[in-house]
Nucleic acid binder design. Sequence first.
DNA 1: CTAGGGTTAG
Length: 285
Amino acid sequence: MRKLLDIDREILSFLKISKNIAQIHQAHAEVVKKGVKQDPVVAFELIWACSSTDSIDYAGKVFAKLEAPNVFHFTALIDGHILLGLVAEAIHLYYEMVGELVHPDSYVTASVLKACGLGLALREGREVHGQVVKLGLSRNRVVGINLMEVYGKCGVFQDAWKVFDDMPEQDAMLRTAMMSCYFDHGRVAEACALFSGVGKKDMLCWTAMIDGLVRNGEMCRALEVFCEMQRENMNPNEVTIVCVLSACSLQGAMEIGRWVHSYLGKFGIDLNRFEGGALINMYSR
DNA sequence: CTAGGGTTAG
């Protein structure tokens, strides 16, 4: 007789490659047939697969049948809700989890803080912050960045800076997150100052800068930064391209837009719905 | 014996 672990492994590898709801249904049928639907790892992979394919109702059904949901299951379900913008439900699930005395870890804490930031749920964010301290997660990078974003998005910058300063290392990622928060509030000068303070700027930092300028109507400066990043031998990716095309479109900078368009191949970028949409938008103006 | 982080048009 095969061990449960061997059966698990087969289903797990199938679950991990399930990319659409049809495959997930098939995998779920296998799980039920093999009688491993209460296996925590299998259940996690199943919920995770549903959550990452926008099948949140199905994820919820699988979750509801679990006899003893653990922190992994809650995290997977919470992340699925966040993906669809259902942040109030995500926060609610976290409270439900704590109420059921399931011990929060850094992953689920980071997830609920992400939801608080997106939902501008300052009160809940502060509560979770208190738990972060109690749980000893204050120095966790992902937790810290999401906590900073809660305060930044809610406009309480002094609290955001407090979190920033208390992190073990103030690197490019942290500064970029802070910069985006200032851009969210139209505070371009502060955002630019942060950008200047980033020592080694990576792709996300450059792109976040361009995006922030575009969102604040600073088209010329956005295009300047785009040129500057290439002088620094940084090749734009598809996200950068969408931001730049958007700037070109709003600015009426057709020459630059055409130039970017003709170089999509050089950057190794295939048109997807984002770039295509941005191009159509630009030319139609 | 499970998983993640900052950037995506209008």
